[in-house]
Amino acid sequence: MFGDYSIGDLGAIFAMQGFAGLILFSVYVLMALGLAIIFGQMGVINMAHGEFMILGAYVTWMTSNAFQTYLPALFPGYFFVAMILAFLASGALGMLVEWGLIRHLNRRPLDTLLATWGLSLILQQAYRSIFGAREVGVELPQWMLGSKQITDTIEVPINGIFVMCLTFLITAAVAYVMYKSRWGRQVRAVVQNRVMAGAVGINTEKVDRYTFGLGCGIAGVAGSAFTMIGSTGPTSGQLYIVDTFLVVVFGGAASLFGTIASAFSISQAQSTMEFFMSGSMAKVLTLLAIVAILMMRPQGLFALKVRK
């Protein structure tokens, strides 16, 4: 399949497809970040994570519509407002879910998996009832459209660069919160030993609730980024949930760096292969490769060395 292209062409193709995969990479990283935090800390498999993402996408869509109707002058800046709103909406729903559902499950991972799947079905149907079954698309402001010409053959889409920077900022902020702040220290204490953390005075219930909210909020921001690569429908989130779980498992749960590296390799592999073959075959080959690697190395790429 590479035979028809010269070396220079191949380089340009890889570079272009690589940049095209940046938005997918960002969505994967943001989704996986939330999942990994929630799984790492609470042992909860959140199958409804895709629906939290879609909530963020719907919020972005509504914000863009609101700006278009009421504040057309400020439309170029709507995306920043939308992201904040998406974070707040998904985060608030996440905390509500933690309070109403997750905390009653007492850390039985397989049961949380089934219960959150049920939640995802309910949310999907709720979106369908509220927003309609048709997929909606978001109009991007003028400055995000178009692409930057780097060389004769390589073009980079501007929204890709923007989302990429955004992802970098959010990841850095999460890393800072997790490893430097007082709250992050509490979270890590709860992960390492829940009982002892409670005994030294950490309110573990509160830590759980905010962690779940934070994870879901990041998924909401992922939804904002998602509006740039696809149209938003009630079931769009479901398509991403398996991929994202594979990203988390492949990277080795509880490793921030691993999550980023695996999101990068998976999105790039898929995006590059899509150029040479049909989208579905690219996806099959990517997933097969991940599953095969996971069978040989079940702990993921960058596992923490823990005794179990």
Binding site: P109, V242, F245, V249, S280, V284, L287, I290, M295
Partner: peptide
């Protein structure tokens, strides 16, 4: 492949789910 390496529980569930996704995409494609 999974049980000999003592993979179980949640990981097994997710990987079997991925296999279901792969087979569906393959059949449709």
């Amino acid at each position: 492949a999974m049980f000999k390496r003592r993979v179980g529980g949640v990981y097994f569930a997710i990987i079997t789910q991925a296999i279901a996704a792969i087979l569906t995409i393959l059949i449709i494609g």
